[in-house]
Design a protein around this nucleic acid. Structure first.
Lengths: 337, 337
DNA sequence: TTGAAAGCGATACCAT
DNA sequence: ATGGTATCGCTTTCAA
């Protein structure tokens, strides 16, 4: 692969001049520029980004760490960041992490080694302390989907508690009393917060939830199927289910219908996230909109700003989910109960 | 950010020694090693991957170019490559391209600048010639989802023609005669090939397809909705639809049902790809399995091999889709016609 | 076992 | 407008 030296030699100019041409620098004669350009094209010269990064200390990539691309939710997150990257003519460096501290740590570290100065990371397992320390070293680090008080100006997060409340309000307004919950068994804050908000709100209306009717499984389509089976197996009647996310909700509906229950006539189901799929599921899923793509863009932009000026301050980094009522929930049919 | 020099100075050893420690090189005294390790930890030293890549000419990243992460199909592709990358302790450099030549060219070029020596690219718009030329320069370049004769040993692709045939066989076996097609309006080979295979197979049974009943829209959920509307608007009866991909199929089903048609009782629908969603759609989608994740892994592995030994040869790079019969298709109800 | 020094491919400052 | 050269952070002979 040819280098800048080759170009210089063949074009009979100095390294500096070639460099100027490559970077569209000023002060280059028209003729010289053309000559150099021609040589570059002739020998198929491509500047070496690594060498460039080494000296400029800018590597023009924005790093993302997330658990799994196949989850549409995370794909949207990546997509949001990607749009900003493309906009700034930067590239995406992806580091996936399982949901455990060691692998999250490693993912971030790989980005550090690459001297990626702008990064958007979703970390669920590292401690607040570790993240705070990391953030102190990497000025362009933004945390997404988590709130850490001392890092308030660098966290883009969703109010899960409020999401739970909204779900409860919706179900309550539909007269549901006997409600089940399908939660995620992944040990992170989100499921718990959604559940707290949910039960809190129920409580204000004097409604409580049977602990037997709360099951936790993997936050996937399959997990949702399994959870619904577990719920059904208990043979405790319920008229509505609040599900951790849309994928699980769709899995649950699948099982429910396979077992002869109609959604929403027999059982109402409400999800969380509002992934594209929610609109196309049958029945169309009632859910809480989690504007992850918008948040990801915001996060990327913030990281970019922070990387330039570590002290830049912003606000309104908290996003509020909104209820999207579609077909999977309906007012309780009195006849049935 | 501290460098290897800092470590050397503080640990009172030479650069070379630190380098040896960092790389777990041999011939380093036990004591020295420990001393260096301690200093590294103390000052939080992280080797600079760019500098390293510059001298070793290996940058330990595998590049991927694809159109859009939010499409589950491509997310799976990325995921497949990612698994191999993780396995080899390499990182993913993502370059998304719109579906046009210029942007595909640019995406690949960005990877080249990074001296990414292993890459898996889906390119639909660059000409065979351009790709051949590119491949000649980048030994670790593998093309996925496209077959180019002179690059036969570096193309991982699916037999779309055969997919079309299988779909036709299935519908034929269910006695369907009046069949509509929803194709993709994106100007690439795939839709055309699937359609060719489909009509060819129909022809062998003396069945032909009304050109009026072939519509093309965007290959998305929304596109599917739109296509179904267009089809319905023609008021030409049909009992089955062969759809370009699962996303469109699900969109189409959505519209069909919104208009009072039951799937599969009134109209059978068959998709293509077998994305995870297909299993959870209602009705569960009959489709053709496109083992994209497996193919992506294979592509990554092949690229890795090629990067090391440009002459390595392989075979069986062609994948064949398989029919997955689920609920969205059923035998034609004679009563209705 | 350890160190000195020559690059890797670019940029940028200082001359000219 | 152009060229010379130090430098970025690291690896890798070659000596010692």
């Amino acid at each position: 692969m040819s280098t800048i030296k080759d170009v210089a030699r063949i074009a009979e100019v100095s390294l500096a001049t070639v460099s100027r041409v490559v970077n569209n620098g000023p002060k280059v004669g028209q003729k010289t520029r053309e000559k150099v350009l021609k040589v570059m094209a002739d020998i198929g010269y491509t500047p070496n980004a690594n060498a460039r990064a080494l000296v400029t200390k800018k590597n023009m990539t924005i790093g993302v760490v997330l658990p799994d691309l196949t989850e549409p939710f995370f794909a949207s997150l990546a997509h949001g960041v990607e749009q900003i990257a493309r906009d700034k003519k930067m590239q995406l460096l992806l580091s996936t992490s399982l949901v455990d501290a060691q692998s999250e740590r490693q993912a971030i570290n790989l980005l550090r080694e690459r001297r990626c100065d702008v990064m958007v990371v979703q970390s669920k397992k590292l401690t607040d302390e570790e993240l705070i320390q990391l953030a102190a070293q990497i000025s362009g680090l933004v945390i997404i989907n988590r709130y850490i008080e001392p890092l308030a100006n660098r966290c883009i997060w969703l109010d899960n508690l409020q999401g739970g409340r909204l779900a409860a309000q919706h179900l309550l307004s539909l007269n549901h009393q006997h409600i089940a919950c399908i939660s995620s068994r992944v040990d992170i804050d989100d499921p718990q917060q959604r559940l707290s908000g949910f039960t809190q709100e129920l409580a204000t209306k004097g409604c409580t939830i049977n602990p037997e009717l709360i099951v936790s499984t993997a936050p996937t389509l399959q997990g949702g199927e399994l959870a619904a089976q577990q719920l059904l197996a208990k043979r405790i009647p319920f008229s509505a289910v609040f599900v951790y996310n849309d994928a699980m909700a769709i899995g649950a509906i699948s099982t429910l219908e396979d077992n002869g229950y109609r959604v929403p006539q027999d059982i109402s189901v409400i999800g969380f996230d509002d992934v594209l799929l929610a609109r196309y599921a049958r029945p169309k899923l009632t859910t809480l909109n989690y504007p992850i793509e918008k948040m990801a863009k915001r996060a990327a932009l913030l990281a970019l700003t922070l990387a330039e000026d570590a002290c830049a301050s912003t606000n309104d980094l908290k996003y509020i989910p909104t209820l999207v009522a579609r077909e999977s929930t309906q007012s309780l049919n009195k006849i049935r109960k």
